[in-house]
């Protein structure tokens, strides 16, 4: 029912296209320059690649002082460990134990890290440091290269750990 309604609304929207004629059509290169989106299926990942060995060097220079040696945590959060802790009273949510998609790590580091100089890393460096963090978590093997093809194929341990919103969950109208 809801789906049918949505499709209907969308076709109305398309039919009304350009009613006010305000704004301009951006050039394809303009869109490309601004488009930072990376989807879990790998759409939007740039060319380039890197290995954990290369990533270790990037990590020690650019990340370690905040996230600690081997990403075990320092002033800022740990990025390894915690697998198996999610159903316990002291869950440790890390890239390795919690994140459902490896593409998210690439995307987040490319746009937001290192914290004080976001955007400073090249695509190769982001792939490499991503590989290093995945390898520290035992998710990829030594020597495996991360690139636009291999990264979306990585299976994260908590891939199936997420469920849709099941609220309202209290009171007489609770769903469960």
């Amino acid at each position: 029912m809801r789906k049918a309604l949505l499709v209907l609304t969308v076709s109305i929207v398309a039919a009304q296209s350009g009613k006010y004629g305000v704004g301009r059509a951006p050039a394809p290169e303009e869109i490309k320059r601004l488009d930072l989106t990376v989807l879990p299926d790998g759409t939007g990942l740039p060319a380039g690649g890197g290995s954990a060995a290369e990533g270790k060097l990037v990590y020690e220079r650019r990340c370690q002082r905040c996230h600690g040696a081997e990403a075990k945590g320092g002033d800022e959060v740990a990025m390894v460990g915690g697998q198996g802790t999610l159903p316990t009273p002291k869950p440790l949510k890390t890239v390795g134990s919690y994140w459902p998609h490896a593409t998210t790590l690439f995307d987040y580091v490319r746009r937001a890290m290192p914290f004080k100089e976001p955007g400073i890393l090249t695509a190769d460096q982001v792939y490499a440091v991503t590989a290093y963090i995945l390898q520290l978590n035992g998710i990829i093997k030594d020597g495996e290269r991360m690139d636009a093809k291999s990264l979306p194929a990585v299976r994260m341990p908590n891939r199936d750990g997420f469920i849709p919103d099941s609220r309202p969950d209290t009171g007489p109208k609770a769903k469960r």
Binding site: L39, W99, P100, T104, I163
Partner: peptide, 23 residues
């Protein structure tokens, strides 16, 4: 997008170790 703030953060871990997403 399954971006950082809808996977690593802003998801709710339940008692059984599963987490609600897109809440």
């Amino acid at each position: 997008g399954m971006v950082k703030d809808e996977t690593s953060k802003y998801t709710e871990l339940l008692g059984d170790g599963k987490a609600r997403i897109f809440t």
